[in-house]
Nucleic acid binder design. Structure first.
Lengths: 350, 350
DNA sequence: TACGTTTGTGCAAACGATTGCATTGCACGT
DNA sequence: ACGTGCAATGCAATCGTTTGCACAAACGTA
């Protein structure tokens, strides 16, 4: 179809090798006369030459493509990550191949296989997170892989995540400082790194405050809106309901909001709310939500950095970076009057 | 690295050709003995053979990849489209290569070039929409291309979009039916297909109602939140401000909400709002927004359908599909009392 | 028996680029 | 005058698959 090296070679009278060397300044070892370079470049231009990257990759065993795996690209958190990753990698001349695993480990395995079949030069993975076996295999094969956002305790690999424990602590301590004592936690998918860490932070904050954990106040089983909805409905029916809810992700929070509206509970007057994650629309909700924000740009930058470092030097020591989240205080938490706190405590003692 | 056809050939004693024919049930023309098939498949399994798709594509001139171009993947509308497209195409054994053009025509051209370099088998494009020249070239080269959501008047190519004129008419007529007379329109990027069509619908609805268009009530110049913010602020300062705002996209609407909150305008009591687009969080906003929803799943399905049809038969007649949008009525529009309507009209006559 | 036809397999040429190893000519030093 | 070295270029193998063509054996048929 389009022009190839051979065509240019034929037209200029030079050999294919020379043409190749001119057009792809690769092997700088050999020198070529200025005149030749001029002629070849000109003819290439005229013929509208475009290299066949399939052939090139086949030969060089490099695709200049990075595989990206995310659990749900329709989630703004991940689509923003993808967007930033693509633009960051472009700067270095790398393309991206994105797969959505739909929070599904077996789809994740399949995607990974495809990515390997495509011979990507490296991988950046926001894993589903329940299993790391397939990921371990890849690292074992020597393919550069960075985990992002989601990582594993039992899998020592380069990665960057936010400090989930810390984020939860910030959220819960904020609630405590505002006078809340009965704080519910609606969790995501148990067994995943993010969820366990966030739960740990919740527990830690309560422990530090000397408040015993009430198992009734912990519920939920996945990261979806429906989960938030169901759990909230349930929390409102228990004997001594929470005065505040801390929810483990933005989607869960949307479900919480829906349930609260249905039950005509006003935020924050009747119940307070803090959420993990801070997608771009959080501040437009009414009330604007107090949220634990993750530094996405920074995370992306570091992930790319780690990846290139690993690609350049496969022997390099493993690095795991933990970023600090930020608590963005908006209007979804009510300051509980001291009186009522005292009253609460008295109630409990009765 | 991994096993290749040659390895299997060597191990089994058959030729590479035979192995190839067994493993890739391609050319069914030739027959191969059951026994041979068994042996070869078994050895392939044992060696963990995975075909090198670079070599394959180089040879067959088919990549089984579809290029997808969207103007902003961090926008839930497009990320949902991408997600659905990927899953739909997977069913047919096709992979996807996604590029984000960042609403930037020159980046779109560059992405297109990359996609062609990658030898994708077809393209589904949600164009930036100001220029179609580069897209025309591609179609001219005979590469299957479908436009989606964004299309062009002066570019006759297969495509599927929502009926933007109709969507606007529905939105504006709803406002009119609820008694509004002064309806502002905050538009997106002028010159783009979607914007012009939406503006046309706005004008048409007013015309049908016999209401003259007040240029003061039309503003805006891109699809971003900041645009909505600025225009709203401005609209609130004019002498005879609107009682309702119709905004041309979800992002613009977020800007509108921010401005209205800053100005302490209560929706819908003090000002009504209808928005084009209906991302998943619209119903969680307070109040939940009345919105023009686009049938994304249907659109994706049709786009894929059109693409395969075109790929199968390049000569097929061109098809442009227009889908009906839906008006989702929620709580952001106030029914204006008849009295005040009459008063409005009297005021205008004075 | 002789001659199509079918069945199962192999040979070798593509696909388009890269690159180690020649090869050629020329300038320079001795 | 002769080797030495460098600059500029070409040869040809290679990456892993696919596939048209050839071919041998087996089979059916008259």
């Amino acid at each position: 179809m389009s022009a190839k090296l051979k065509d240019i070679a034929l037209k200029t009278g030079f050999s294919q090798s020379t043409v190749s060397r001119v057009l792809h300044k690769g092997s700088q070892k050999v020198s070529i006369s200025e005149e030749t370079i001029r002629i070849i470049k000109k003819t290439a231009e005229e013929l509208g030459y475009r290299p066949n990257i399939l052939a090139r990759s086949l030969r060089t065993e490099q695709t200049h493509e990075i595989g990206i795996l995310v659990p749900d690209i329709s989630n703004p958190f991940f689509s923003t990550i993808v967007k930033n990753l693509a633009s960051e990698l472009r700067k270095f001349g790398y393309g991206t191949v994105v797969y959505d695993t739909d929070e599904n480990t077996s789809l994740e395995e399949e995607s990974l296989r495809h990515l390997l079949d495509k011979r990507v030069d490296g991988l950046i993975v926001a894993a589903v997170g329940q299993e790391a076996k397939h990921l371990k295999e890849i690292v074992h094969k020597g393919i550069p892989l960075i985990t992002m956002d989601r990582c594993f305790n039992d899998f020592d690999v380069d990665g960057v995540s936010v400090d989930n424990v810390q984020g939860s602590i910030m959220a819960v301590q904020h609630l405590l400082n505002e006078g809340h004592q009965r704080i519910a936690f609606i969790q995501g998918l148990p067994g995943t790194y993010a969820n366990e860490e966030r739960k740990k932070g919740y527990a830690k904050a309560l422990e530090l405050a000397g408040i015993p954990i009430d198992p009734q106040l912990i519920g939920g089983n996945d990261f979806r809106a429906s989960n938030g909805y169901i759990e909230t409905k349930h929390l409102l029916t228990i004997k001594n309901p929470p005065t505040a809810i801390f929810s483990a992700s933005d989607l869960i929070t949307l479900g919480v909001l829906e349930a609260l509206r249905e039950e005509k509970k006003i935020i924050p007057q009747e119940i307070s709310l803090v959420t993990f994650d801070d997608p771009y629309f959080t501040k437009y909700l009414s009330p604007a939500l107090t949220a634990v924000a993750q530094p996405i740009e920074r995370m992306v930058e570091i992930a790319v950095n780690l990846l290139f470092r690993r690609m350049k030097n496969p022997q390099e020591q493993i690095r795991r970076v933990l970023l600090e989240p930020t608590l963005v205080v908006r209007n979804s938490v009510l300051r509980v009057a001291r009186l009522s706190v005292v009253k609460n405590i008295r109630d409990q003692n009765l």
